[in-house]
Design a protein around this nucleic acid. Sequence first.
DNA 1: CGCACCGATGTGAGCGCTAACAATCCCTGG
DNA 2: CCAGGGATTGTTAGCGCTCACATCGGTGCG
Lengths: 363, 363
Amino acid sequence: MEPEGAATAQPEGSTRALVMSDVAALAGVSHQTVSRVINGHPNVAPHTRERVEAAIAQLGYRPNIAARALVTGSTRTIGLVTVKINQYGPAQTMLGLEKAARAAGYSLSVSILDEATASAMRDAVDRFVSQSVDGIVALATYDDAAAALATLDPPVPLVAVQVGGDEVRPAVGVDQEAGARLATRHLLELGHRTVHHVTGPADSQEARGRQDGWRSELLAVGAPVPEIIGGDWTPSSGYAAGKQLAERIRNDEDVTAVFLANDQMALGLLAALHEEGLSVPRDVSVVGFDDLPEAPYFTPPLTTVRQDFAELGRRGVQLVLARLQGEDLHPEPVPAALLVRSSTGPARAPSRRKGRTLRATTA
Amino acid sequence: MEPEGAATAQPEGSTRALVMSDVAALAGVSHQTVSRVINGHPNVAPHTRERVEAAIAQLGYRPNIAARALVTGSTRTIGLVTVKINQYGPAQTMLGLEKAARAAGYSLSVSILDEATASAMRDAVDRFVSQSVDGIVALATYDDAAAALATLDPPVPLVAVQVGGDEVRPAVGVDQEAGARLATRHLLELGHRTVHHVTGPADSQEARGRQDGWRSELLAVGAPVPEIIGGDWTPSSGYAAGKQLAERIRNDEDVTAVFLANDQMALGLLAALHEEGLSVPRDVSVVGFDDLPEAPYFTPPLTTVRQDFAELGRRGVQLVLARLQGEDLHPEPVPAALLVRSSTGPARAPSRRKGRTLRATTA
DNA sequence: CGCACCGATGTGAGCGCTAACAATCCCTGG
DNA sequence: CCAGGGATTGTTAGCGCTCACATCGGTGCG
């Protein structure tokens, strides 16, 4: 980037044009010995090691990683391909991944897709391959992305994070089903006859996992399984669900508990219910999923399910590194935990609750 | 990573062990001509260029970027150092940056700090330098991070995104002050005598910018400037502010309009006001800042200020690239826009509003 | 008609590092 | 007392690419 003649132009002892032999010369050894010290090879005399380390420190030497990458074939970089980083889950997962990668001495290169299409996914993986990352982590919660992943066979380890089943290659994920069962059970235990469910998008494996958990818990206790209400993660779809549910309550249907596949939809539902003059949790109990930072400040504070994203990231990186060494571990799903706040309460008046008055707030 | 003997093991015509001379041999030219074609050098005969391109396509050849980086000194990577990616603003900015970087043919390497301390910042920048990124973008909205940036003098361009003034090196940011004035003016125009303000953390330049905007708008129209209420971005601090304000309203102070430095605090305030039996916007008008995806679904839907993060990212990358070429552009701040929803309304009963009844909901 | 010149291509060197091998040196055991 | 072996260090050869320069064939002009 600059002729080496300018090497000493830096005001303070900053990096530049310093190469291994500079260190070697100062320490009075060969460059190879310096290399050995840097890479922690065993057979270096303690005395020599010290001298080399001192020289490195004195010069502020930093190995050129491009040169190292050229010969080792490893860039010590992990590529992350993800979608919709503005959603809480992906953002948190990314945070966990970065931390774990850094701790393992890897850096994280990211590619944020606009859409989770197969071709976008393929392109991103391709880009990482020609960037010669050591491994790739894909956040693939949507079917087509997951499908795209399945067709890919990059020359580096590729692991999926947060996909539903084990359909796709090595994968780690949160135990969506267990989390959903926790939420459902909580509502059931409060005495609700059944629990309604607002799902996420049909092509999201996470959404399906939550739905499965909800259904199986209902089935397990012999509770009726109401028809699901479709949603798409947005508050707006939760709002629509809230309106629909309010209408059904007005028609005297037995709707006292709702489990939504994420907190944002719960927020929308809360808003709709409020508009319809329904009180949470007096009239309806509500549980979300994700534990957004805002969730404790919803009106009312939202009972929800928290996923341990840091742990997820850690395992994701761990999986990549294991694969890199040829190991083939199959990690357990990361557990989820229920956080009970004020949006859930005991079911009132077991069955008959005729003659309720509904205030219309909007008019 | 693997002995080159295994080079042809790949099932389909995937990448591996392909080097420039393979392409050269197939095209019947020298490796240097291949290099020229790849790098778009002018003096290549059209016919030759075509043949080389065909060979590249046929083989699926991808240049080894480590080798290129070794000789050119450029990795075509931009480093991003940021804090708190789980907050909406940073996450969106990052998205914008990644997009812009990718469009410019750069990839984005990220480092997410736990804390915005000087030493963490320094370490991250250091790591990027030894990773030999071409440029660094720092999201430095906090003073100590910004201060750390000012002391740093890395051998690559370093630009700050979203810092307050021009104190720090090349920087781009959203015009916080203008956004805040928009919000304040909106409330004033609705007939409110003055506007209360809940700030962000004192060491955040963004928070101070918003506060300055609020104050100068108040001053501009000769409205009284109430004491600011301290906050820290969290819903919890907004909640506390809400409680405090409710108390003051109960004591008949003239509080009818609040501008909060972000939406999350507005959410907390909304919750507190609701608990205190105060109606928004009937009793109090509320404006936030950020336009979270959830903001339209708050109770009531929140009037707020939107920042164009995509544009911010674009300009950030543009600035780095300009610096890389020695240019020294000083970009304008990115504008912010007011979004009026239902949390703001006209001021009632100009002054006297004795004898109000406050329901206590919690008891 | 021949020489200078330019566009197109090839050749050689080397970026900074690690891996493989070679060369020491010092010790141990027969 | 000398061969053998392990520990330590040095030497050499590339990794795959781009840069600088050499080469070659053709064109323009004196």
